[in-house]
Design a protein around this nucleic acid. Structure first.
Length: 831
RNA sequence: GGGCGAGUGGCGGAACUGGUAUACGCGACGGACUUAAAAUCCGUUGCCUGAAUAAGGCUUGUGGGUUCGAGUCCCACCUCGCCCACCA
């Protein structure tokens, strides 16, 4: 008998599939289409790790399942090759990033193939190739032409180590996401001229569509929070006793509490603050210009993390000015405080210390009055002196004249109506989301296709001159003045202005790599197109992506991709505004102690090691999909792969036994049992894979195999029903363990691959048994099981249950007050 | 601080719309084969009392509730994980 030897058979099948083009997708096929993919990989040079093995196997199983089920199934492959890690690695190693990519990517090919991911290699893409980034640049041009790209000088997060600006989501705990260890520097704010995409124009669209997405709920919620839509009111206050006439406008979502307002705080970046600091304005009674200027300076230098380290201790400075609350003519002193953010709302807030914790803390720090205007569920009406009395998000109004007695929700509406009628304020909507900063001052990215002309200003590179090819440089370190290394590429830099033909200079910023990854799924459908970004006809046939998964990038990447898809619909390039029909936010594999696998900790698990130890990719894939539900984080168990290896070997051994058995008949009872087992398995596996519950799908195959081992002790013969059983098991296990499946499929006599168009069908008629087991309870406790013919009536069942010895004991001649009967399942006697 | 999710054997985890809790796997123990080991196969394995594969009791983080019946539904609390975080 041949032994199960993955080391021999796996490479052999990989070659065969390659040669036969088994996984090549025909995008013009008449079959129904299906595309499953995981977020593409960033080739870092360290190879794939167990986390990649997890991610890509998830979408591969899905793609294989659909391919077997008769779909034209496409499992694409590509590389997110631009970006900082490759560039930093190149700086360190002294090799250009393009050269190191040329070396790294072929290594990845080997690893992907060893894992048996059913990729269509003929359509491979990489974002760093000019053929690809030509179209990334084209997207920028389209944005610019549609007035969705603009340049603006803004305070940006700046990482000293990266020498580049960072998006908000790239700042983690006050540090750069790439440099977040203890000895790394904190990020700073720096004023930089940046290119932006106006994603905020799409905020409502992006928000409204979220509910209808078939995505992991936590991701949908994260997207909603990221957009952060808030409806409120901008209240404008006039300022008293000032040298020039001024107003201050505050945004609030809680105008109902406005009778409790006792002060106003503006952000250090507020223009009023600036005017006070440079002496343009002052209170008639005098403002401490020096103190104000010092405070502003100190707070801009202060990093985010320093502010956090100070906890909630509020700082600020009085301006000498007062605003007037028109509701009750109360004078509200105006402060400058750094807890107020300039980027949200109007950069000014009205302080209601009785009902907002931050305002309360500020009031305590500056000894400002605290008024109660809401009584919460606790009924506490006492003056507010402690923090835990603050913040009633439910309650009724007091001390608020015409609002008294109203619930806060109704009071909010009434106050907004009142303020709008009296011209005190105007309803507004605010978003947390800002425009997408797309400039990076780094070398390894797609150059922004812009030319700066002394005469014509900003000029777009004409489409026919794209791509603007990234020049080969010896030294790609940032230039140090805030510009990328491209600023030193003098030949490249100097260019003829497309408008006037005069001497001009290229833009030296490159595009954020999130743009590369926000449209790559479309390029998969037409990877070689030289004339267009892609053929819309093919894309419209294949969109949306049916299945997408990943363990990271729940907000930024997915939101940007959705934005680009919506932009593409407006350009008529695609039909579907939502690019990903289904998104699964899968869990990660972590070390046994719960720590993340990482190179620096040296606790990584290399999938290739496990394969080469002799367990094979099939056992590894099966273990990863079996260990836990896909959305859960899993701890790596070194005993796990041997376990699934054993399971596959059991299938192998049993099949060998069958193949060397004599031809013969299988008796009816056994035939029935085998049918029930196999068809039950097929039903469960089909449903479970469909619903992304791979762990229980595998469990039910294991269970069926265990059953077959029992059945074979009765009689194992080369009969139709046994043949059907082995084919069923092999087809069901094929998405998880593709090599052993195709090998055994051929041993069973087939000449084609199990992986195309071979998914078993089940028939419910085999699932029915002629006997049913009924649970009998007395007072809700299980006391007996009875076996009844499957056509037994309720009357029969209850009668039989009642006379059961065990049950009789518990009924103990007492009167049965109530009998509950659950059809074909259970009887419960209440005494 | 806010939001979301999860607590089930020694471990990873099953359990459909409330109906036999602990499927499947790992580990452990026992047996068969073997000179021996590995591999393989067959058993046992939630906890407590019991000699018992007799019988009984208990058990899904804790405490209450609804129900004939609760891992599942409701309320309160505890613990852990993830995400966001001075967003007005």
């Amino acid at each position: 008998m041949k032994r199960y030897n993955p080391k021999e058979l796996e490479p052999r099948w990989q070659k065969t599939w390659d040669k036969d083009g088994t996984y090549k997708a025909n995008l013009k096929s008449d079959k129904p289409k299906y595309i499953a993919m995981s977020m593409f990989n960033y080739p870092s040079g360290t190879g794939i790790h167990i986390g990649h093995a997890m991610n890509y196997t998830i979408s591969d199983v899905k793609a294989r399942f659909k391919r077997q089920s008769g779909y034209e199934s496409y499992h694409p492959v590509g590389w997110d090759a631009f970006g900082l890690p490759a560039e930093n690695y190149a700086i360190k190693a002294g090799v250009s990033p393009s050269r190191s990519m040329a070396k790294i990517i072929p290594d990845y090919h080997k690893q992907y193939k060893a894992m048996a991911w059913s990729n269509d290699w003929s359509k491979e893409i990489s974002t760093h190739e000019p053929e690809y980034y030509k179209w990334t640049q084209w997207i920028f041009s389209q944005m610019y032409k549609n007035k969705l790209a603009y340049q603006d000088a803004r305070l940006q997060w700046w990482c000293e180590k990266c020498q580049t600006v960072l998006a908000n989501e790239q700042v983690i705990d006050g540090k750069c996401w790439r440099h977040d260890s203890a000895d790394d520097p904190l990020v700073e704010k720096k004023e930089v001229k940046q290119w932006f995409f106006k994603i905020t124009d799409y905020a409502d669209e992006l928000l409204d569509a979220i509910d209808s997405l078939d995505w992991t709920d936590s991701v949908k919620l994260a997207q909603k929070n990221w957009i952060g839509k808030k409806t409120g009111i901008n209240i404008t206050y006039s300022i008293e006793g000032i040298t020039e006439e001024r107003e201050v406008t505050c945004f609030t979502t809680r105008p109902d509490t406005n009778f409790g307002a006792t002060f106003i705080v503006i952000s250090p970046e507020h223009e009023l603050a600036e005017e006070l600091a440079n002496g343009k304005l002052a209170a008639k009674t005098g403002s401490d210009m020096k103190k104000i200027a010092e405070y502003i300076k100190a707070s801009t230098v202060k990093s985010e993390i320093e502010r956090q380290q100070e906890g909630r201790k509020k700082t600020g400075v009085f301006t000498g000015l007062y605003a007037v609350n028109q509701l009750n003519n109360q004078k509200l002193p105006i402060y400058i405080g750094d807890f107020v953010l300039s980027g949200f709302g109007t950069g000014a807030v009205v302080g209601v210390p009785g009902h907002d914790i931050r305002d309360f803390e500020f009031a305590q720090a500056f000894d400002l009055p605290i008024e109660r205007v809401v009584v919460g569920d606790d009924g506490d009406e006492l003056p507010i002196t402690r923090a835990e009395q603050v913040q009633e998000d439910n309650g009724k109004m007091i001390n608020s004249e015409f609002l008294d007695g109203l619930h806060i929700k109704d009071a909010t509406e009434k106050m907004m109506d009142h303020m709008e009628a009296k011209n005190m304020g105007k309803r507004v909507v605010n978003y947390r989301m800002r425009d997408w900063s797309v400039s990076r001052q780094r070398y390894w990215g797609a150059p922004i296709p812009i030319i700066h002309c002394p005469k014509d200003g900003i000029v777009l590179v004409p489409d026919e001159q794209l791509p603007v090819v990234l020049p080969q440089l010896e030294d790609f370190k940032p230039s140090g003045d805030g510009r990328s290394a491209l600023a030193r590429a003098k030949d490249w830099l100097s260019v003829e202005c497309p408008k006037c033909g005069g001497k001009a200079e290229r833009e030296t910023d490159t595009l954020d790599t999130y743009i590369d990854s926000s449209w790559y799924m479309y390029r998969y459908f037409d990877p070689q197109n030289q004339d267009k970004i892609f053929d819309s006809e093919i894309v419209k046939k294949w969109e949306p992506i049916d299945f997408y998964n990943g363990a990271d990038h729940a907000t930024a990447h997915l939101l940007y991709a959705r934005f680009i898809a919506r932009f593409f619909t407006k350009l008529g390039l695609v039909n579907e505004p939502e690019p990903f029909k289904q998104f699964l936010f899968n869990g990660k594999v972590v070390a046994q102690d719960g720590a993340m696998f990482s190179k620096s900790k040296g606790n990584g698990v290399d999938p290739l090691d496990i394969i080469n130890q002799g367990y094979g990719a099939d056992a590894l894939r099966t273990y990863l999909m079996f260990a836990a539900p896909l959305e859960l984080w899993t701890k790596w168990d070194p005993q796990g792969v041997p376990g699934t290896y054993r399971f596959l070997a059991r299938i192998w051994n049993l099949t060998q036994e069958y193949l060397s058995a004599q031809e013969g008949n299988t008796e009816d009872k056994l035939t029935q049992d085998i049918h029930r087992t196999i068809h039950g398995m097929i039903k469960k596996v089909t449903k479970d894979i469909e619903e992304n519950r791979y762990n229980t799908a595998i469990a039910s195959i294991m269970q069926a195999v265990n059953e077959l081992y029992k059945f074979k002790t009765k009689s194992l013969a080369r009969s139709d029903v046994w043949q059907e059983a082995f084919e069923g098991v092999i087809m069901c296990v094929a998405p998880f363990a593709p090599h052993i499946a195709d090998e055994l499929w051929h041993q069973l006599g087939y000449k084609d691959s199990v992986h195309i168009d071979h998914w078993p069908k089940y028939d419910d008629k085999y699932l029915a048994s002629d006997e049913i087991t009924i649970v009998v309870q007395v007072n809700g406790k299980v006391r007996a099981n009875i076996t009844m013919p499957s056509d037994a009536t309720e009357e029969d069942i209850v009668k039989t249950a009642k006379v059961n010895e065990k049950v009789k004991e518990y009924l103990n001649k007492k009167e049965v007050r109530k009998t509950i009967y659950v059809p074909r399942k259970l009887v419960n006697f209440v005494v």
